[in-house]
């Protein structure tokens, strides 16, 4: 085997391996190579976020417009605060925008669905969404149902 052939095939092999890594990074793990887009964060206060995870999507009318950056517990009120990272510049979501935690399909992941309000002023960095509806917890729903049936 000529040294030249060996060197060429080794070069091709190393190149193929590097390309495979790039492919895995870009196509499979979905890394966005373009510079980080503009985002701003707003907070949403929920009575219950059961099942919502960090990195879950935030959608408006089914279109993903951001993701859940953090979820914290508010010890004073016993509520959960989800920090939502929204794409773009502030200035298109009214102050009384509502947030709901919904489930994708029957067994799918939980995500936050926003619904537009009617205020003239807009949500800006750090604002709090208060018109919220937390996650439906099946157990408590069934519990409520059973107690009501018993009362009747």
């Amino acid at each position: 085997m000529q040294m030249r052939t060996i060197e060429i095939s080794v070069g091709a092999f190393v190149l193929a391996g590097a390309l495979a890594l790039v492919f895995l990074a870009v196509k499979v793990s979905g890394v966005d190579l373009t510079a980080s887009r503009d985002t701003y964060t707003v907070q949403a206060r929920f009575n219950d976020v059961a099942g919502l995870r960090e990195r879950a999507k935030v959608s408006l009318a089914g279109v993903t417009i951001g993701r859940v950056a953090r979820i914290e517990a508010d010890m004073n009120y016993g509520e959960a605060i989800a920090v939502l990272e929204l794409n773009g510049q502030p200035g298109n979501l009214p102050l009384d925008t509502g947030a709901r935690i919904v489930t994708e399909g029957l067994l799918g992941a939980r995500y936050v669905s926003l619904s537009l309000g009617i205020e003239e002023d807009y949500l800006t960095e750090g604002d709090m969404i208060t018109d919220t509806q937390g996650a439906l917890v099946l157990e408590s729903l069934i519990g409520d149902f059973v107690t009501k049936m018993g009362a009747n």
Binding site: F13, V14, A16, G17, A18, A20, L21, L24
Partner: peptide, 12 residues
């Protein structure tokens, strides 16, 4: 050097 590269190729 080779095994990590082979792993990447395997995955793809």
């Amino acid at each position: 050097l080779c095994l990590p590269l082979l792993t990447a190729i395997f995955n793809v």
